[in-house]
């Protein structure tokens, strides 16, 4: 069974309770249609568990088939630096069908972020190593496509529909002391 080799750490984007019982780690690609389709399901899962669940998002951009996946991840990181990672995360998935650098810069403006600063950060490759670290950690953990989820460190092999995720998370919650 594949397990998460890079534990959740200070570099991660974490949404949800500090004392969460379950950690759901998602490896995703902003240009992947399955990830966009999974997003409303992930929100339902978050709504279901509230503070009992911590959601972590890590980048897994397959740039050879998704040419805008990297710039989208960089834009999300830039938003994160400015305190609006999750807002940008959601916005990128919602606008995936028109994903382009133009759309990403427009989204940055929508959140009151400087387009010049965003361009500068992208040109300097400020987030490249973090995104690459996310990607390689995913590869070594057995991420085989996107989205891939880990529930308390164990790779989840089911579908990304909310009912199935909820069932699996409930099972993890009820499992005997199994913290990551």
């Amino acid at each position: 069974m594949s397990t998460l080799r890079v534990p959740v750490n200070a570099h991660d984007h974490i949404s949800g309770g500090r004392n969460a019982i379950v950690t759901l780690v998602e490896y995703g690609d902003y240009q992947c249609p399955h990830c966009a389709a999974a997003q409303p399901n992930v929100r339902r899962v978050q709504a279901q568990f509230g503070e009992r669940l911590a959601l972590v998002y890590r980048h897994f951009p397959l740039t050879e088939i998704h040419p805008y996946a990297l710039v989208a991840a960089e834009t999300a990181e830039f938003a994160g630096e400015n305190g609006v990672f999750w807002e940008m995360h959601e916005a990128i998935f919602r606008n995936q069908r028109m994903l382009s650098p133009t759309t990403l810069f427009a989204l940055a403006s929508t959140f009151g972020l400087s387009q010049l600063d965003l361009r500068d950060a992208i040109n300097r490759g400020r987030y490249r190593s973090k995104i690459n670290d996310d990607f390689m950690g995913g590869i070594r953990s057995g991420v085989n496509g996107t989205p891939t989820f880990f529930i308390n460190g164990e790779r989840y092999n089911g579908a990304y529909l909310a009912p199935e995720l909820i069932t699996a998370i409930n099972a993890a919650m009820n499992a005997p002391a199994h913290q990551t």
């Binding site: 397959l62 740039t63 050879e64 088939i65 390689m136 085989n144 496509g145």
Partner: peptide, 13 residues
């Protein structure tokens, strides 16, 4: 497709 896309992506590795 996903499997080969993944390997394609990490060819440098």
């Amino acid at each position: 497709g996903d499997q080969l896309a993944l390997y394609n992506q990490i060819l440098p590795e």
